[in-house]
Each structure stands twice: as structure tokens, then as C-alpha cells.
Amino acid sequence: MTISANMAWVLVALMVLTILLQVFCRYVLNSALPWPEEVARAFMIWMMALVAAQAYHNGSFVAIDMLHEMMPPALARLLKLLLLVIAALVLFRLFTLGLEFFERGFRTRAASFKLPRAWIYLAMPVCFGTMLLVNIELILKNLLGLAAPTPYQAPTGD
């Protein structure tokens, strides 16, 4: 498994533990903690960001492809290329907006722990940046005519 997938499953485990801890404190110890909800949400967002690219690569983003099957293959490939370019434009804009969002996050503090929200917001440019890399890979494959999906090795360290 890649580093990002490893981090993601640890985050899932931490999410579960955080909420179970909250349940324990609230119902068993009768005193709630202020931070678990916000912390668990931060874990969830980072979890999503770390595996989104791989999910995109594996085809988890559903699309209607009935039109493609009715077209001549060459035309279908051209249409697919166009759609990939649209997706790339969307991802690129999301990535740059994500960076601005991150920078602005230094002005806001998390409500229940002493950290700027920027460190949560950073997940967004990471998410869309890595998806953009996958998207570029898909465009290149389309251009080279390699339509068949191959097992994906995400760049490590992202």
C-alpha cells in the first residue's frame, strides 16, 4: 500500500476511536469533552484527501457512458479526451482555490483546539492536486491510446 493509503487507514481508525471515546466520556463518565467532534471531522477530511486520487484512478467517480458505447471507437476516444480536459480544468481551479483557502485559514482558529484551521484546509489542495496528477496521467494514456486501466501506484510522500 502507498504511504497515503497507510495514513488514510490510520485516520479512519482514529476517527472511530475519537467518537467511541466521546461516547464513553458522555455516557459512562458523564462528562463530555469539547474536542472530539471537531477533531474527528478533521480526520475525516484528511482521510478523504489522502485516498481521493486513488479512488479517482480506480474509477470510483461514476459517469454515464452509454453514449460512448453507441459511438465509433475513435469518436468515443475523442469525446473522452474532451471530458478529461474539462475535468483537468475543474481540478486545476479547485487546486488553486484550495491553496488560497489554505492561506486564508491562518486567520481562523479551530473552535476546540489551538491550531489554525489552515492545517485542516490544507487537505483540500492536497486532494485536488493529487487528483489533477491522476487526471493528467489519464489524459496522457488517452493520447497514447492506452485506454485500459492499469493498477495504480500513487506517487509516494504526498
Binding site: R26, N30, S31, A32, P34, E37, E38, A111, S112
Partner: peptide
């Protein structure tokens, strides 16, 4: 008493100062 507050420091401090226990809901 367990008193509901929003997730913010000041109201929680107030509830604690009164000897009650702040609970974010």
C-alpha cells in the same frame, strides 16, 4: 448540573465557574 454550551471557550469557562459541567451539544 450538566449545562449545554456551544463549542467556545468563554461560555464553557462561565459554566465551570458556576461549578457546573459544560457539555457541547
Amino acid at each position: 448540573l450538566k449545562i449545554r454550551t456551544v463549542v467556545a471557550d468563554l461560555p464553557q469557562e462561565l459554566v465551570r465557574a458556576m461549578g457546573a459541567s459544560p457539555t457541547p451539544i
